[in-house]
Design a protein around this nucleic acid. Structure first.
Length: 513
DNA sequence: GAATTCCCCTG
DNA sequence: CAGGTGATATTG
């Protein structure tokens, strides 16, 4: 039943080798406890040890899970990852939630402030407080350069309570006051509103057409509008909503992104979200090389390919589930139906006041883009004839409570969708692997969602039908793909193969070969 | 830095 | 099962 030789497991156990973590489990007879290979507890003697393939097998034989290494927890979960990642998670939280203080961050991590301080200092040799101050200042500086927000609002957006503390800290750490920093910027003053425009750059080349078409094909009209040169979408960020319009300016290698915000503290997260959607941090050269290594002839490679991201994990999950075994077109039709049908009640159902405020603000702002759920429709910049309203993607709660009989798809898939919504309602923070426990969600779905929503550059969808066919088709022309060689950028190989199979380049292949 | 918790061994 | 050891994570 165990697929590893005994001597290997013995060595792996004694070395506490992390590479074998999860592959087998160690039952200790003297205590009736079972552990993972990496457990830091005192090393049991060989004569007391039995090996098991999985936690279930160990528990069946009367062992209980160890409290230190938590072999019962889901692989990848916080409990599984243990202390090693606590600092990492803390850093992320500080970066994302600029307005939370250190106590609240520690609270989110589930540890005391004192311990958080200690761990942080130990690993990064800076105190969390100091790290946070620098993070806030850096972001404030970016806003001073890239936007025309008044200082007071820059302060709020970067986590300070008021302009005074920002001015003080900026002066102390950089020697310059915010207004001195601002003087370097060349932007013209923009109208006073909660609209914020920032310019987000990327490393060229950038295959705008590819990422644009990818989104366009998957457009959910009530939630997003994809223009020839722009992407406009309403994002759910925590309990709030953000509307953005990203306009591609290829001559400057950047996007002009306008946000409409309820609360300026959302700006940091909003910028991160758009960067993720447009994959602005990617390094095209490394990816190009890896695609060559994988065996793609350079004539078939889109240099500057980007991975189109999905911000909301729930949305990504819905897209994946509804997209199981049907064409993109069919799936998006059903998603549009879902969105439009459940949408009508949405404004009433939203429990927080922020939505109302947001709607009110939308009425007057974001000229030339779209409005959110307001009766005053504003035409889009892109000379599209019909005025539009945009709305946030349906929530887990809505889907969980809805009668889904109006959807045209197998009952089993509707059940999965519903179970998924229920799961997300109860455990919104669960890691994607945990979704496997839901009936109807398998590895393809998990991998697809991981690739689209976790900025995971190294997902190869080997079981995807389209991918399989495309590999076969290439092999017929003596182009052999070794996906392993594309690591750690295999997501881009997946994208490339999808793109090839879309037919646009199929004629080209013939010419090449 | 002490105290607590946890694991494993021995008798 | 009780008593003792060593080690780690976490707290006040």
């Amino acid at each position: 039943m165990l697929n590893l030789p005994l001597c290997i497991m013995q060595k792996a156990r004694l070395a506490r080798d992390a590479r074998f973590d999860g592959l087998f489990f160690i039952g200790v007879k003297s205590t009736s406890i079972f552990c993972r290979t990496i457990c830091k507890a005192r090393m049991p003697q060989e004569k007391n040890v039995t090996y098991y393939e999985n936690p279930i097998a160990a528990m069946n034989n009367g062992f209980r899970p160890c409290l230190m290494c938590r072999p019962d927890s889901a692989p990848g979960s916080y409990a599984w990852k243990g202390v090693e990642t606590t600092v990492e998670r803390g850093v992320k939280l500080i970066n994302v939630h600029l307005s939370l203080n250190i106590n609240e961050i520690a609270d989110k991590l589930g540890i005391s402030t004192r311990y958080f301080n200690k761990l942080f200092e130990q690993h990064l040799h800076v105190s969390p407080k100091r790290y946070q101050l620098l993070t806030r200042l850096l972001f404030a500086k970016q806003l001073l350069h890239e936007s025309c927000l008044p200082i007071e609002q820059v302060a709020q957006a970067s986590g300070f309570n008021a302009a005074k503390p920002l001015q003080h800290h900026m002066k102390v750490t950089t020697g310059l006051t915010p207004s001195q920093i601002r003087r370097f910027t060349t932007l013209k003053s923009q109208a006073k509103s909660t609209n914020v425009t920032v310019y987000l750059c990327y490393r060229p080349p950038y295959q705008w057409q590819h990422i644009r078409d990818f989104y366009k094909l998957r457009e959910i009209g009530a939630n997003e509008k994809i223009g020839e040169n722009s992407i406009c979408k309403v994002l759910r960020l925590g309990d709030s909503h953000v509307l953005f319009n990203a306009l591609h300016q290829s001559q400057n290698n950047r996007f002009e992104v306008t946000f409409s915000l309820v609360d300026l503290r959302l700006l940091k997260g909003s910028i991160a979200a758009v960067k993720k959607m447009l994959d602005l941090n990617c390094e095209p050269e490394a990816i190009y090389d890896s695609l060559v290594d994988a065996g793609l002839p350079s004539s078939l490679i889109l240099n500057g390919l980007r991975l189109p991201g999905v911000i909301d994990k729930f949305e990504a999950g819905c897209r994946a589930i509804v997209g199981q075994q049907v064409t993109v077109k069919a799936a998006i039709g059903q998603l549009n139906l879902l969105q439009n049908t459940l949408n009508t009640k949405q404004v009433l159902e939203c429990d927080n006041a922020s939505t109302e405020l947001f709607v009110a603000q939308q009425k007057c702002h974001l000229k030339g883009a779209y409005t959110l759920n307001s009766e005053c429709h504003i035409k889009s910049n892109e000379a599209q004839s019909t005025p539009s309203v945009l709305n946030v993607f349906v929530s887990p709660k809505q889907v969980a409570q809805a009668d889904l009989s109006f959807l045209k798809m197998p009952q089993a898939r509707k059940n999965t969708l519903k179970a998924f919504a229920q799961f997300m309602l109860e455990k919104p923070q669960a890691c994607i692997e945990e979704w496997l426990n839901i009936k109807g969600i398998g590895m393809w779905t998990v991998n697809y969602v991981t690739m689209r929503s976790s900025e995971s550059p190294d997902i190869f969808l080997a079981t995807d039908l389209v991918i399989k066919n495309q590999i076969k088709k290439l092999a017929e022309q003596e182009i052999n793909i070794t996906q392993e060689a594309a690591a750690p950028w295999r997501s881009y190989l997946t994208l490339s193969l999808w793109h090839l199979s879309s037919g646009i380049l199929n004629t080209k292949i013939n010419k090449v070969s």
